[in-house]
């Protein structure tokens, strides 16, 4: 168990972050908190890619005259490029989510899930 942890502790911590995010999304009852949880979860996934791209003894993927063409001298830049996109996507999702939350608040006057559901049902009954 310890061996698993030593070599891969960044992965383990990433997974911990993911679980925290998931906890926020599923357990928290406030819609805004759920959205915060979602943000954390997405950050954790981005972190996972970055951690994977990292190599010991390598440097940032910018050409360096001293290091030359050696591939192992640079960190793989492709995951970085992908994650730039992923961050934009996650911000866009957050934006849409927040816009929806404002609408929900206007309609129901609260962001607490149990109360919103209650008000939805009482309206359907009437």
């Amino acid at each position: 168990m310890i061996d698993l942890f030593i070599g891969r502790w960044p992965y383990v911590l990433t997974v911990v972050l993911m679980l925290i995010g998931l906890y926020g999304m599923l357990v928290k009852e406030n819609f805004l908190k759920k959205l915060i949880g979602m943000n954390i979860f997405q950050s954790a996934i981005i972190l996972f890619f970055i951690v994977h791209a990292f190599k010991w003894g390598a440097t940032v993927p910018v050409y360096d005259h001293h290091l030359g063409d050696a591939v192992e001298a640079y960190i793989n830049p492709i995951p970085h490029g992908l994650m730039l996109t992923a961050i934009v996507v996650s911000v866009a999702t957050t934006g849409v989510g927040l816009a929806l939350l404002v609408r929900i608040y206007r309609a129901f006057g609260t962001l607490e899930e149990p109360q919103v559901l209650e008000r939805m049902q009482s309206r359907n009954r009437s």
Binding site: L22, M25, F31, K34, L35, M38, F41, Q42, I45, F48, F49, H52, P79, A86, S90, T93, V96, G97, L100, L101, R103, I104, A107, F108, V116, L117, M120, R123
Partner: peptide
């Protein structure tokens, strides 16, 4: 009521997309 269902859809949808992204990773 639509924003509420849309918001839930958003949470689950992003979760699904994240899983897909992890798989791709």
């Amino acid at each position: 009521e639509a924003p509420v269902s849309a918001f839930r859809y958003l949470l689950l949808g992003s979760l699904g997309a994240s899983f897909y992204l992890m798989g791709v990773g």
